[in-house]
Design a protein around this nucleic acid. Structure first.
Length: 505
RNA sequence: GGCGCAUUGGUGUAGUUGGUUAACACGCUGCCCUCUCAAGGCAGAGAUCACGGGUUCGAGUCCCGUAUGCGCUGCCA
């Protein structure tokens, strides 16, 4: 039975790279009829927060990735991890390192590592030689007993090769001489990442480790630990990274909220659409069908379909129309206009609620009207937010007029200010206020005045919706209804606003 | 510095065991449709498959080298 896990560390929000790892694990589990487990790696107590854990769980829920069995907190197992490290010392597979701990500045670690390596190479120092590695057990015990602080390091063979076959990246090889005696337990007794993951993965019975490629080279170290504990080594599948537009690693600090999963929820993404988009970053279905339901995705998914090259997640934070990846936006629009209406309705409801545009009548008396309206306007929306912004005029009389629309559709023909109320009267006489009847009446009215129908159509669009663009105008009339249509045609609000502005000058 | 991984149009990807004009999606351009904007339909621009060598009758596909990018190299995860 396949058992996989998603193991995020709760330091901040869930970013899209992690979300994709979760998705691939989930897809694989569902495909194989296995289990998808969730483990919170909160061993770094200083940086871990409960809020972050909550946001991760919420994010997974939003994406529709349900996990099996109980949530595991890595910190709960710390004592077991310590015991396991001590056991290794007893067995001679690890040793106590009494070297005093070096102070380290968190900011420049990477640089520091490189510099140290360079300096050591220059001086001909072998960084793998440790004076305590071969300290006699009795002496080691004595010093520990005397209360001298120590870290525990794994004793890595000097010679030989570590190898494993990664499902995505293929055969991996690394000489033991390249692997340092890694620290398992800090001198303050705190178990370290490599130790904890391996132990937890063993305990949880993980069969396939699917995670970011940034762990690829560390996998050799972990395999050493599996072997030290006499456990079966799982299969590994590393995922290519998701990069920022400048091809730099996606980072919470540098790229901010645009890489946070919650941003996509908050800015009006349909979960299924974002999940679909995410799945296509680094994986492609064998038949090339890109729009997939959850079931179709599970059916097509395979670890073999994952590519090896890092992908770029394109976004332009300063461009409101392309604030995130174009394809993600397109996919969201595609979902909004084609998904079953009954699935979209609750999402629109949530959006209108938060914009204070929701009325309970939409759930009973006016449910037919509501559905028809959503159906009409969903056709050209990109996010759920559009229902409360661009779609505001359908749900409230309090809406703004787009300046460009006003000058283009209204002010260009000053006589419209008198004609529009007249049109309101004419439309008021229509028997049934249907799209067809309104169209006939409007066209006839235009003919009588000797102007193009388009003049009234476009002017009405702006008067009724505040905008220059929108659905077929006669459909809009029907949706708005006789009374509202007439009121808005008569209101003269845009003209009034314009005069007021002039008065201010 | 060392080690590892990657490199197909702007972006995401396809390219089975090497074999004619490198495929799809998004984006872009034009046309059609039309009351606007989308959607849709049609047409199109855009890739000497990072570069340089080789192997071969023939390479995006195999080999070597170079460059670039990314990752790891920590008593972080």
């Amino acid at each position: 039975m396949v058992r996989v896990r998603f193991a995020p560390s709760p330091t901040g929000y869930l970013h899209i790279g992690a979300a994709r790892s979760a998705l691939f694990n989930w897809l694989f589990a569902r495909k194989m009829g296995g289990k998808f487990l969730l483990r919170i790696e909160d061993t770094d107590l200083q940086r871990s927060t409960e809020e972050s854990t909550r946001s991760i769980i919420e994010g997974l829920e939003w994406l529709g990735l349900d996990y099996d069995e109980d949530l595991v907190f890595q910190s709960d197992n710390a004592e077991k991890h310590r015991a396991a490290a001590r056991q290794l010392v007893e067995e001679g597979k690890a040793y106590r390192d009494f070297t005093p701990k070096e102070a380290r500045e968190d900011r420049s670690v990477k640089q520091e590592i490189a510099e140290r390596a360079r300096a050591q190479a220059a001086e001909g120092i072998d960084q793998r030689s440790n004076p305590f590695r071969d300290l006699p057990q009795a002496e080691s015990d004595a010093r520990a007993g005397a209360g001298e602080p120590f870290a525990i390091r794994l004793k890595v063979s000097r010679e030989g090769q570590s190898r494993f076959a990664d499902i995505v990246y293929g055969e991996q090889e690394r000489g033991y001489s390249e692997i340092e005696d890694l620290v398992l337990l800090r001198s303050d007794g705190h178990p370290l990442y490599n130790l904890s993951v391996v132990l937890d993965d063993i305990e949880m019975g993980i069969t396939h480790v699917i995670r970011g490629q940034d762990h690829l080279t560390n996998t050799h170290k972990q395999i050493l630990l599996y072997q030290a504990f006499g456990a079966k080594v799982p299969e590994f599948a590393h995922l290519p990274l998701i990069l920022a537009p400048n091809k730099a690693k996606l980072s919470k600090r540098k790229h901010g909220e645009v890489v946070s999963l919650t941003t996509y929820r908050d800015r009006g993404f349909v979960p299924a659409a974002f999940r679909n988009f995410l799945a296509l970053l680094g994986w492609s279905p064998p038949d090339g069908q890109e729009i997939m339901t959850r079931e179709e995705m599970i059916e097509r998914f395979s670890l073999e379909g994952i590519g090896r090259a890092n992908s770029v997640f394109n976004f332009h934070e300063n461009d409101p129309r392309h604030w995130t990846d174009d394809k993600a936006l397109w996919m969201n629009a595609e979902y909004i206009r084609t998904m079953p209406l009954e699935e979209l309705l609750p999402m629109v409801k949530t959006e209108l609620r938060s914009a204070k545009l929701w009325r309970e009548e939409y759930d009973d008396d006016e449910s037919a009207w509501f559905e028809k309206t959503v159906e009409l306007i969903r056709q050209r929306f990109f996010t759920l937010k559009d229902f409360s912004s661009q779609g505001r005029a359908y749900f409230s009389d309090d809406f703004d007029f787009d300046e460009a629309a006003v000058s283009k559709n209204l002010k260009k023909e000053p006589r419209l200010r008198e004609w529009l109320p007249a049109l309101a009267v004419r439309l008021g006489q229509v028997a049934t206020f249907s799209a067809a009847n309104v169209e006939t009446a409007l066209r006839q009215f235009a003919d009588e005045l000797g102007v193009k129908a388009g003049l009234f159509i476009n002017a009405a669009r702006t008067m009724l919706t505040g905008q220059a663009v929108g659905p077929s105008m006669f459909e809009v009339f029907e949706i708005m209804g006789r009374e509202r249509s007439a009121n808005r045609l008569r209101s003269g609000v845009p003209w009034f606003d314009a005069m007021e502005e002039l008065g201010d000058v």
